[in-house]
Design a protein around this nucleic acid. Structure first.
Lengths: 162, 162
DNA sequence: GCTGTTATACTCGGATAGAAGATGTCCGAGTCTTAACGG
DNA sequence: CCGTTAAGACTCGGACATCTTCTATCCGAGTATAACAGC
């Protein structure tokens, strides 16, 4: 059970976009450069975020990505789901209905208890991630940075927005 | 983010072993037959469970697997971890330390806020799964079964223990 | 000087390879059973 | 009739293929920009 690498990238990128001026998009190339990520592959995940409605895109020169909603209204769960897909983590294949002692189909109207347990666990995880927003992540990152890093960040922003 | 198929198999198999007589092991072949699972592949997961100390093995004729502990002391989390591995679901690669605005190593003594958020979410899921035991799963399965299925199960048990 | 047009460069978007992990299968090592054999 | 022993069959254990998913990359489609020519 593991999250793909793209989830980490997606959250960091969204936090970066939250700190950028909202009237101006950041290109995939700039976003990749900021974290030294492979530009083409990051672009793939950015497309997934755009398809999910978390980012809006502008093409052409001075185009790029920006947050589709205020950062406080985008949860970490939405980002993870946009990149990883929306299926449940535990997929019950109903093996109780197979084999020599198969349960009758009538008895299987209620979901399998094991699947229900994992679904409850996944819900608990989802609830935590739904309560944490991109704004929270950006705030934490900003508070952890010293003045030197903040100055470097501002300088990078104006350069990336050229 | 998803659990492998082996986790489902492992939990079902452990629940089955919980219902079997504790003085007598069940072979991998019998366990596979019960759910119509590929025997060789299920054996692989059974080995993982044995390595993790959840099952004990006996070789030779009339050998097989049995629970190493009472079913009420084996949690679903332990089963999942034994099969999937113990690493964290979200692995922070510290991309904040890379790029033109890299955070200083000194500022990174405290863990990344994003990684902490995902770790908290994973802990929430783990806590739920730690509270649910194999005994609970076996009980639910038994209560969902009708009398016909219970009779078939008992008949299968004596045949598998031949 | 202003406006319309056109060429350009920059951006996203989906289609296309490669690597890693999960899935599935096989045969050898080990051991308990069992039955034959000798005492 | 009993103890010993050796063969046999059954079991687990790890090494060996196959396949899906994740990772990584490239080139074409589309658009705002900016230069340029005409008025």
């Amino acid at each position: 059970m593991r999250f793909g690498e793209g989830v980490e990238w997606g959250v960091h990128v969204c936090a970066l976009l939250a700190a950028a001026p909202p009237d101006r998009g950041l290109s995939a190339k700039a976003l990749a450069e900021f974290h030294e990520l492979p530009p083409a592959y990051l672009a793939k995940h950015l497309q997934a975020l755009a398809r999910a409605g978390l980012l809006t895109t502008s093409r052409g020169p001075r185009g790029g990505y920006r947050l589709a909603r205020p950062a406080g209204e985008i949860s970490l769960w939405e980002v993870a789901e946009a990149i990883e897909g929306s299926g449940p983590a535990f997929r019950c294949t109903e093996i109780r209905q197979r084999g020599p002692c198969a349960a009758s189909a009538k008895a299987c109207i209620r979901p399998c208890g094991i699947a229900a347990a994992f679904a409850a666990a996944e819900n608990a995880m989802r609830k935590v991630l739904e309560k944490i927003t991109i704004a929270d992540a950006a705030m934490q990152a900003a508070s952890a940075a010293d003045s030197r890093q903040m100055a470097a960040f501002r300088a990078w922003l104006v350069r990336a927005a050229t």
